[in-house]
């Protein structure tokens, strides 16, 4: 709506999908959590179906804008708009979500988050496709996730936001890590940081080292909101907190 009002978008037609109740659901079954595209932030936050390993989605949805915004804004809207500083794309990318899209001829296809988010305001959704839902695989291993952001005021758009998802075979071995960042140029993965955590116990020193690697992989910038260095500091500080939270959640300690 903001994009239409500010004329970033000039649509010929606007079709309100709010009445499509088929697109509003949170469903966990057979090792899969599926969230309908028109599921509102408030419904994600209040859902009992989201398991602890995917809780980064709730972390993100619970801090979008304010409660009036969360009463209207939808997961699908945020993912398809893919704003450069949006919370849920980073969480969905960290949780390796898969987008279910439908074409006007009724054919459907699935696109992994890695291939869906192309850059700020760009996704792999084709012009006449509609996002139906997002799938998240549930794992048998111990796994945990988290998302946190820092903005100029509480619950504002993130200057830096970080999401993480870790799997552990045992307390000493992280065998899967996805770390994502938002606020700079849309949701992006920190591949070097992820690789450095795999086969470690993800202790504080190792996470700190991983976030140093993340900073070396990413370019920040200075503007009126924050300096380049401050953004690097945010990446390190929030990254440590988020990854430690994800680890604690994997072992149900938080």
């Amino acid at each position: 709506m903001q994009a239409v009002k500010s004329r970033i978008l000039r649509p010929a037609h606007v079709i309100d999908l709010q009445a499509l109740s088929e697109l509003k659901f949170v469903k966990a079954e057979k090792g899969l959590l599926t969230v309908g595209a028109m599921t509102r932030y408030v419904d994600i936050v209040s859902s009992d179906s989201i398991p602890l390993e995917l809780i980064a989605l709730k972390d993100a949805a619970s801090r979008v804008g304010d409660r009036q915004v969360r009463n209207r804004g939808t997961l699908g809207g945020s993912l398809c708009w893919n704003y450069s500083a949006a919370c849920t794309p980073a969480a969905v990318l960290a949780l390796d979500g898969a987008m279910n899209l439908i074409s006007p001829d009724g054919s459907t296809r699935q696109v992994a988050a890695d291939d869906f988010f192309l850059g700020p305001l760009e996704t792999a959704r084709k012009e006449f496709e509609i996002l139906l839902s997002v799938d998240f695989k549930l794992t048998d291993s111990k796994s945990g996730s988290a998302y946190k952001k820092w903005g100029l005021v509480t619950d504002a758009l993130p200057v830096i936001g970080i999401a993480a998802c870790l799997h552990f075979s045992n307390m000493d071995c992280c065998d899967y890590a996805r770390i994502t960042l938002t606020g700079l140029s849309g949701a992006q993965r920190c591949l070097g940081a992820e690789a450095s955590l795999v086969s470690t116990s993800a202790n504080t020193e190792q996470i700190t080292e991983a976030m140093m690697i993340a900073c070396s992989e990413i370019s920040t910038y200075t503007d009126s909101i924050a300096t380049e260095d401050y953004r690097y500091q945010l990446i390190k500080t929030i990254g440590l907190e988020v990854i430690e939270t994800a680890k604690k959640r994997a072992f149900s300690l938080a």
Binding site: M1, V14, D16, Q18, V69, N71
Partner: peptide
């Protein structure tokens, strides 16, 4: 309130 829930009426079209 839209159907009982707080929303910002500047962020909605009347048609919605």
């Amino acid at each position: 309130h839209l159907d009982g829930e707080a929303v910002k009426s500047c962020m909605l079209l009347a048609a919605q």
